[in-house]
Amino acid sequence: MEDHPKWMHRAMDLAREAFKNKEVPVGCILVYKDQELAQGRNEVNETKNATRHAEIVAIEKVLKWCDENNKNSDEIFENITLYVTVEPCIMCAAALRQMKIPLVVYGCANDRFGGCKSILPVASDELPTLGPKLVCISGLLAEEAVNILKEFYKGENLNAPEDKRKIKPN
C-alpha cells in the first residue's frame, strides 16, 4: 500500500531542511515498496552542471544502490514512486519516463519549467520511444511547497538573469 501523504510529508521535511541550509527548498525522494531508497537535492552549483536536479541525483543514487545490492534496476524502477514538493521540469519528466518510473506525486506546479502540465505535458504525451507514460498526482502539500519557495526567493528579483542570482532553482 502506498501512503502518499506520509511520503509527501517526508519530502516536505527535506525541503525545510534544505531551506535551513540555505539550499533550494525542494524535497525529493524515491520510494520502492514503502521503503525510501534515495533522496536528492539540487547540485547545480557545486557541479557547474545545470542538469543536476534533485530528481536526477536521486535516480543515480538508486542506480548505485541496485549495483551495490545486486538488484535488477529495471524491476526496481518499475515499482518506484517519486515524491517531490515541486512539479518536475521537462528534462526530469523525460528522464523519469526513460527510467520507466510509473508514478510521480508532487506538490505545487512549476510555472517556469514544468514537464507534467505547466509548460509541456512531456509526462503524458505520445512518446513511446521515450518510455511509458508517467502518471502524475499533484496538489499534495502544494501550499506549503509554494510558500517555502516564495520565502526562499524573497527579496530576490526572479526576473534577473539566472547567472546573476545567488542560487538557481530546480
Binding site: 552542471n49 545545470a50 542538469t51 521540469c89 521537462i90 528534462m91 519528466a93 523525460a94 528522464a95 526513460q98 519549467f113 514537464g115 509541456l120 512531456v122 512518446l127 520511444t129 521515450l130 547567472d163
Partner: peptide, 13 residues
Amino acid sequence: PCSMCAMALVHSR
C-alpha cells in the same frame, strides 16, 4: 535530441 536533452540544453544556456 530527445525532450530530456533539449531541455538540458535550455538549462545549460
